[in-house]
Nucleic acid binder design. Sequence first.
DNA 1: CTTTGCGTTTATAACGTTTTAAATATGTCT
DNA 2: AGACATATTTAAAACGTTATAAACGCAAAG
Lengths: 342, 342
Amino acid sequence: MPNRTSDQKPTQKMIADRAGISVGAVSRALANDPKIAADTRRMVQALATEMGYSPDRAAQRLRTGRTQVINLILPPHEEIFGFGTSLIRGITRGLEGSSFHLVVMPDFDADAAGEDTLRRIVRNRLSDGVLFSRTEPDDTRVRFLAEAGFPFVSHGRTELSTPHPYVDYDNYGFAYEAARRLIARGARSLSILLPPPNLSFRQHLLHGFMTAVRESGVRHEIFEGADLDSTPEQVRAAVEARYRAPDAPEGLILPGEVSGLAALAAVQDIGLVPDRDVRLVVKQTTGLFDLVRPRVDSIFEDLPEAGVQMAQLLLRRIAGEAPEALQYLQPISAPVASGPDR
Amino acid sequence: MPNRTSDQKPTQKMIADRAGISVGAVSRALANDPKIAADTRRMVQALATEMGYSPDRAAQRLRTGRTQVINLILPPHEEIFGFGTSLIRGITRGLEGSSFHLVVMPDFDADAAGEDTLRRIVRNRLSDGVLFSRTEPDDTRVRFLAEAGFPFVSHGRTELSTPHPYVDYDNYGFAYEAARRLIARGARSLSILLPPPNLSFRQHLLHGFMTAVRESGVRHEIFEGADLDSTPEQVRAAVEARYRAPDAPEGLILPGEVSGLAALAAVQDIGLVPDRDVRLVVKQTTGLFDLVRPRVDSIFEDLPEAGVQMAQLLLRRIAGEAPEALQYLQPISAPVASGPDR
DNA sequence: CTTTGCGTTTATAACGTTTTAAATATGTCT
DNA sequence: AGACATATTTAAAACGTTATAAACGCAAAG
């Protein structure tokens, strides 16, 4: 435990006084600068830990310009549950041991001065790098940050030509696997609920879905009347409306937990029996569906792990690594997938 | 939009140069110090906004010692969903317009130097105040922070004699109302799943439960074999075990969403029909149970609102208000409660 | 005409750190 | 012995801000 010689927060000056050397020497000794004699370094470092020294972030930041902060941008969109906290836990884990702090900022619209959150962060050097989600194929945030040379990692890819760091879940794989499972379970017509058109992963889901559909020649449609951003009640109502019709698809893919629950509620509300009248596959991020009855087949997306990856890639980006080396596509975790048969 | 006369981040020095006055004058003009002539103040302020000036946080922090940061301590306990993100959104809303930043920190165990998260924050002045949850009757964090005179707001009360700022949900009211509803619906024996004994709100829940039980003279028990911190599977298994027995309570109160879901799964798994064989009331924080079938009676806890309150109370505490004026007990929101009958 | 006082501004120091350039000591080589 | 390189340390400046003390101009009062 730190020596409480004085109640004041120890500074380099105090160390310097106790050691009988200058503060400059202390600074470099702590940085393990070889310009300082090896035994002086050892002495200073020992003294520092003994006194419980830790550098003043403000002073460091003022001097060097490095904030030791990364920002997580929260979408203004109110999510019902899950997404934020899993990712945040992952990020803090990925930051562990790095002396970086995580500041979460809501993506408020442009403020009085006409500057939005991201511009404020870059212009005022509020952090050394940012993380965000809900990436679009032609994402203005990605463009802006890449242009400004500001480190970032997006959750989700873009279709921009210049490579940039990202972490993304293999939504292609998800949709493909989900469709295959439904077909294997006897569904002769498929549907999938998609995110709104502006989000990148809509394309990936669609592509995976269509690939499986074409391979098997099964009938298919894209679910209409709601998307993944619709309120749960909208999803429920839309699914109910569709499944009142006689030609409703026998298999339905729901790439979101809330939507999955809403769809399940809808089919139950109109007296259909899941797994007999309609087969579902949902995306699961929290373990929620292990507790839902009747059981529904699910495929897992590990958000905490995505957070860890995003944090670590961002740190490497900040350290100067090239963007193209910092891309991670998260596979669908086959073994964890828990179905109704387990 | 800010004038991009130069690409550099504008400083007080630049303003001073353009205005032909000293930086000290600029500093005080921006602070609206009456020692500066009124028209000078106006002039400087206009110039500042025109140039897009905003103060350098590091410099401000170094000079004044005020960090303009508040910390949210995340419990090490992995929650399945919901809690964190709702609260975080609320906190950011409560901080809006205040120039305070929110840094989230996991409550890791004591690090190599033997200091835990809270001590590090206080000792190194990493923030101006902290927020945390999972408060205990004799909470060491509350003791430590109160002793150190460090601003904080806890989510949950303590039994300590010195008053401190908190935001708490009326869990007494929740349990009382839940029990009353179950009795009104015909349950002749009641049970409640409680948090582990070290958490404050166990007492409040228990007290509300017991009050309702005594008023009505109904049979009762405290659910055993699992608590609110148990894994969902543990809760499920324990509920299943209890409800296989013939004397199982006719009403069960579940003050947590995950536990509610787990209990519902358990009774369904053994062929009991909810609302006929066993009546449930759950606590809802996300709208989740509006999507669960069969419908389950629920009482709402507004976590985003709790976050807003916590943030605002903390800001007032930091501003110097007395602790005893900064306590907020969140009522159960009667009108929002949605039952199976709606 | 000096003094006193007030309103306003400036010069300066300080917060704790890193970095640059200069200074000192310790040699080695001619 | 002088010169010169090398290793180690120190002194000083800087980052942008706020606070303290001093200074200035100018009026009213003595």
